[in-house]
C-alpha cells in the first residue's frame, strides 16, 4: 500500500497480488478455504497436504518466488523518485521505539535486533538457520529494505522446512472440537509480519475462555506516527502512515 501512496498507482501492489493468489490457491486446496482456513486443531492439523499441493509449494518456493522477488527489487529499490521520497524521512530514535513499544520491521530498522523467533523461540524456529535483517538509519528507506530482506529470510526458512518435512500422522490426540483448559491465565506471542502478535487468555476451567485479549502490532505501532510526523511535510504523512503498514482489522481493538 505504501507504493500506492507514493504514486506508483496499483502497479506494484497488483504484481504482489498475483503471487498471493497462487499462495491462496494452495491454502484452498489444503484447508478448504482461502482466508478462514480452519486448518489447525488441538494437537495437530486437520489433514495432510496432498502430493499435488506439495509439488505446487515446492515449485513456488524453489522456482517462482525467488524470480519474482528479484523482479520487485528491480522495479522499486533503485527508483530515484522512490528513494528520494524515503531517505531520511520519518526518523524515530531507538529510545522512542522502545518507549512506544514499537515492534517489527520499524524496530529492526532502528538498529535493535529484536525478533521473538530468536528472543523466545516458539514452534520449531529454533531448528532453522536464518538472519535477522538489521539497519541503523531508522528512516523509511531502511524499513523498506528490512522488509525486502525479511521476505528473503522467510524463503530461506521455507526452503529448510521443505527439505526435511517429515511423513506421519498429522494429529497427535483424538479429534476434539472443544477442550477443557485448567483455570489460570496465559500469554502466547508470535512474530508477525508487522510485529509482536500476542494472545492473552484467562480460563476459569470451563469450555470457553473467561477473558480474551489480542495484542495486535498495528494498534501499538500506530501510536508512534505522531513522533515520526512532527516536523515533516504534509505530503510525507501519507508515506509514513503507509510504512507503518497498518491493517484496519488489527486497529479495531
Amino acid at each position: 500500500m505504501l507504493w500506492n501512496d507514493l504514486g506508483a498507482y496499483f502497479n506494484p501492489a497488483l504484481y504482489a497480488v498475483e503471487e498471493r493468489e497462487l499462495m491462496l490457491d494452495i491454502f484452498e486446496a489444503v484447508s478448504g478455504s482461502r482466508m478462514m482456513c480452519n486448518y489447525h486443531r488441538f494437537g495437530g492439523v486437520v489433514r495432510d497436504i496432498d502430493p499435488a499441493s506439495m509439488q505446487k509449494i515446492k515449485d513456488l518456493v524453489f522456482d517462482r518466488l525467488p524470480r519474482k522477488i528479484e523482479e520487485f527489487e528491480r522495479l522499486l529499490s533503485e527508483n530515484e523518485i522512490f528513494v528520494s521520497r524515503m531517505k531520511g524521512i520519518g526518523y524515530l530514535s531507538p529510545a522512542d521505539c522502545l518507549a512506544y513499544s514499537v515492534t517489527g520491521p520499524t524496530l529492526r530498522a532502528a538498529g535493535i535486533p529484536y525478533d521473538i523467533r530468536r528472543a523466545e523461540p516458539y514452534g520449531i524456529y529454533d531448528r532453522f538457520e536464518f538472519d535477522i535483517p538489521l539497519k541503523h538509519n531508522s528512516d523509511l528507506m531502511d524499513r523498506y529494505l528490512v522488509r525486502i530482506e525479511e521476505i528473503k529470510q522467510s524463503m530461506r526458512i521455507l526452503r529448510q522446512a521443505l527439505k526435511d518435512i517429515p511423513e506421519g500422522p498429522v494429529l497427535a490426540n483424538k479429534p476434539t472440537y472443544q477442550i477443557k483448559v485448567p483455570a489460570g491465565e496465559a500469554y502466547g506471542r508470535v512474530e508477525g509480519p508487522k510485529g509482536e502478535l500476542g494472545y492473552y487468555i484467562i480460563s476459569n476451567g470451563k469450555g470457553n475462555p473467561y477473558r480474551y485479549h489480542i495484542r495486535t502490532p498495528s494498534f501499538v505501532n500506530i501510536t508512534s506516527v505522531e513522533k515520526m510526523c512532527v516536523g515533516t511535510k504534509i505530503a510525507d504523512f501519507v508515506t509514513i502512515l503507509g510504512m507503518v503498514d497498518i491493517v484496519l482489522g488489527e486497529l479495531d481493538r
Binding site: R74, L75, E78, E80, I81, F82, V83
Partner: peptide, 11 residues
C-alpha cells in the same frame, strides 16, 4: 534516472 528506467522496463 537509471534506476527509474530499470523499474519501468519491468512494467
Amino acid at each position: 534516472g537509471l534506476g527509474l528506467l530499470k523499474g519501468l522496463s519491468v512494467t
